[in-house]
Write a protein that binds this DNA or RNA. Structure first.
Lengths: 560, 560
DNA sequence: GTGTCGGCAACAGGCCGACAA
DNA sequence: TTGTCGGCCTGTTGCCGACAC
């Protein structure tokens, strides 16, 4: 009769699922790490890390994020300080992710040239040591069927659950476990059967149904130091995020950390947030010293290596392979990038496995040691001195000449989008208002002007019938929507590199107003119209038109 | 054995409910009207109607829409042409509503002075004549319980369903019926029991569950002229919209037809859309001739009348009452409005019933005739000549003098919002970008400037320490946010009535920059600062300051 | 005519030990 | 040690006519 307290209505408050997207922050750090899995290490506040925008982008593309054509790409390795780490869990799926706040730190780049580098961060906390009473079980068909309950592994039950009175014939108890959102689930825990075993019966199917768990997913129980029993979920990784979660809070955060915004923040050295879901994608944030260690090594073709990973059933495995070569995966956009720079051949073929790895992912091949302490038994540096110069080309803001030709690679993307006058890349810009500027383009349908927004740093194409398409990077400019008369604009940044503008009203009689580059009060002929390379720079020429007056607004100058 | 086709898995494709908000347009006009109920008549494209913004506002307020303080209210009766009518149905609730596109038509106002008015529209189509084979039944407890099926009224089954072979002992058939979204539902229709009756069994509970129908709701079946059987839902009206439908498409459309946008469109004589849900609110669109007929009548106190309405169980009823008086419901905001201008006393007291009605809602008290053909047996006009002049005060745009005093009633609303320099009403402006202009006000927290938006036609208060508060209506103006130097602005409408502006930077040293009224390049002393009534108009005076240059943007002039 | 009920059959949910891997 | 199965009990769904309003 013991333990048979009103278990009929357990976990059964079947009201509408009011998912609160407002504060999806996680209540237990321990549980978050347990759900994230053994291979996951998070940087801590203050750590030095290397942010790999290439990997970030690769991940975002798997989320069907908008194209980033036209964004001026940052260098492949961005050295950053972690200013904040916030843990989240997706309501609905319980998928864990973290929002890592980073700020580009050029001090770290300068240290690269020096002999020794600091090791201020712990390259991955040893999670197991701090969470002793925990177990994780991949759900079987029996566990998830409506026919029965959950079969608890004996060691797990003895380790995590309160002790039972085994003198009874069928000892049982009522368990309470708290999930990552703080929701409490109740289960009947009974020790019965022949041979005897631990089972969770009443309450279990409600948990399965509410969380839409299927066999292959894993649940984990964790008895904290505070004595509280917690449980978490690790969904099978090979599954896509369940349809019906389009407006997830992770998606929200992803949008917030839109890549264009990130790029902008890197250049401005302001804090940016990235949504970091290590279970679901590439690890594009690497501890500083781990990156340096791996980067200072040679990876000769033929070298054997280990790669530790988590299998679909949430267990820690390793696979071995051989390095076949080393090359840039995208030499056009990311020259010199270490991201997946190593080409490998796996000992066991698996179509789902990438045939490229990043240096910091792998270890020496060591068939003897079954388990090490993570990334610390990594390749020891061949030389303390850096063999590669990672200092990126951050000088774009400081130079006065702009490399237009480099930007021409966006031309293909923009084809088909060409309309009279100004054009801009098709990427949808979202993010901070401060970093956005407005751009106008003529609407061919009604001859009015539609305003668009262009992010600072983004490429635009100036493309009318008078000259070949000219791709430029938008430094600082604004065009004002007006239905009567386009207003010209001149970039007024410290280095008055260029400004695009045209004079005269665009209408049927005058489809091609005078256009060119603005500087001061004058409109100069566009140097790129003249294909003579000697003239393809912005220099003092005779102006083709001059404005009478000017007007300063928003910190920009409008010529009239 | 007949009719026993695989009915077990009927209506059972229990995938996620993928509600498509994209095109919630209704597939059957007939079904829409059936769901809307017998009291509903919709105007047609091209019809002349009277739009009553007061009623629209009353409805929006029940939807918790933002306050409209500060909006310049239109006249109470706006004569319009219907340019489009689109029918919708709420996915999830199947609630029907319509989007009516209107454009203010001043031709209709001019006709008011003439002797006869056209009757170009049908004052409500006689729905019953065109939909013969239809029935509507309010669901009983038995109909909605899991215990059984749906008991079909005999006449209804014989009228709408295909004939059965009554020679059989238990004749049955499989029915297919299409709902308002085009979804097909399958039911087993059987004639059995003692006494024999028509029942819908298999498939019925799925329909009840999927649509979350409860006893008190009504379902209707309708056999169209095309032979297709359709079914619809009329939820019990006394119920609030089920929680969990916050982002309804009707709500979306309501936002689109924000009242401020509507007001703006009325003044600009552009097309505006209103979301018209006649089941759920006041009828604020009245056929032109119906409005005129009712308005031309006397409604003496003591007169008895009928009002037809739909009861909660979706049947057509009428209630009677006596007119007790006639007065404006809101003489401050809507003087002379016919909206709910009649005060009434009902014969049967009902707290839920309004004690005011609009003239076009009621009929002569006629206890004999049980049912007429809608609004056509309305009060016959006492006189064909109009007794009231409905021509509104639309001349605001054409006069050069502005009635400031009239606007002072907004002063109270604006108190407590006063800050240095420009102020504006606290109303949150939403809607079309075209009709919005930006306004800036100093932020007292950090001495920077915050930009706000003011709708054309909205009142603002110019309120600094130098003179009494001055309330003005914004005709056409824009202030540009800049952190360095406020830019002055002058209204440049056809009648350059006034412009507010100030010169000089607002900072600690210069907390009160020169302010006054702008005209051309000059800043004139504010005539309202001088309380001498003889000078309280905009006249030629000595300018207190003059600008050097100007800049035209957006059709406005900025002085520098 | 039709709303509600009891009867009853089918089925799903869920607790149990048997059995075997 | 534990995954899966058959047995078995129970609650729910849903089709049927009885009965009464």
């Amino acid at each position: 009769m013991c333990g048979l307290i009103d278990l009929n209505t357990i976990n059964n408050d079947s009201g509408e699922v009011t998912t609160s997207f407002s504060t999806p922050v996680v209540c237990s750090l321990e549980l978050w790490h347990a759900c994230a899995g053994p291979r996951i290490s998070l940087p801590e506040k203050g750590n030095a890390v290397v942010y790999l925008p290439q990997g970030h982008l690769e991940l975002q593309r798997t989320y069907n994020s908008p194209a980033i054509a036209g964004v001026h790409l940052p260098p492949p390795h961005v050295f950053c300080r972690v200013t904040d780490v916030k843990l989240y869990s997706e309501p609905g799926t319980d998928e864990v992710f973290a929002r890592v706040s980073l700020v580009h730190d050029s001090q770290l780049e300068k240290k690269l040239g020096e002999t020794e580098v600091e090791e201020d961060d712990n390259g991955g906390t040893d999670e197991k040591a701090s969470t002793p009473h925990m177990f994780c079980k991949t759900l079987t068909a029996s566990d998830t069927s409506t026919h029965g309950g959950f079969s608890v592994p004996r060691r797990a039950a003895e380790d995590c659950f309160p002790p039972l009175d085994y003198r009874q014939q069928r000892p049982s108890q009522e368990l309470e476990a708290e999930d990552i959102h703080g929701t409490v689930w109740k289960f009947r825990h009974i020790f019965r059967g022949q041979p005897r075993r631990h089972l969770l019966t009443t309450g279990w199917s409600a948990f399965i149904n509410k969380n839409k768990l299927v066999s292959g997913d894993a649940v984990l129980f964790l008895r904290g130091d505070d004595g509280v029993l917690r449980l978490g979920v690790r969904r099978s990784v090979h599954l896509k995020p369940p349809s019906g979660f389009p407006a997830t809070s992770a998606g929200q955060l992803l949008r917030d950390s839109s890549f264009t915004t990130v790029v902008n923040s890197i250049y401005q050295k302001t804090v940016f947030n990235v949504c970091y879901n290590p279970r679901r994608g590439s690890k594009f944030i690497v501890p500083y010293h781990q990156f340096l260690k791996s980067a200072s090594n040679n990876f000769p073709p033929g070298m054997r290596f280990n790669l530790r990973f988590e299998t679909e059933d949430a267990t820690d495995r390793r696979c071995t392979g051989i390095i076949t070569g080393s090359s840039d995966i995208d030499p056009v956009n990311w020259p010199g990038s270490k991201w997946r720079c190593l080409m490998v051949k796996w000992d066991v073929v698996d179509v789902s496995r990438h045939d490229r790895v990043s240096p910091w992912e792998i270890e020496y091949h060591n068939p003897g040691s079954s388990s090490g302490s993570g990334s610390d038994n990594i390749l020891s540096p061949v030389s303390k001195r850096m063999k590669t110069d990672f200092r990126p080309q951050f000088q774009a803001h400081e130079g006065t000449s702009l490399d237009f030709n480099k930007c021409l690679r966006f031309q293909k993307v923009l084809q088909g989008q060409e309309i009279f006058g100004y054009n801009h890349s098709p990427s949808e810009v979202v993010g901070s208002r401060n970093s956005m500027i407005s751009l106008l383009r003529p609407d061919p349908r009604n001859r009015a002007f539609r305003s668009s927004e262009v992010l600072q740093g983004q490429e635009i194409v100036y493309n009318n019938s008078m000259h070949p398409p000219l791709v430029m990077r938008f430094q600082n400019a604004i065009l004002q929507p007006t239905y009567s008369r386009p207003v010209n604009v001149v970039n007024e940044s410290r280095h008055p590199a260029f400004g695009l503008g045209y004079l005269g009203q665009h209408n049927d009689n005058n489809p091609n107003p005078v256009s060119g580059l603005f500087k001061e009060k004058s409109l100069y002929p566009n140097p790129n119209m003249n294909l003579n390379p000697k003239q393809s720079h912005i220099g003092p020429q005779e102006p083709v038109a001059t404005c009478r007056s000017s007007c300063r607004l928003f910190g920009f100058t409008f010529w009239l």
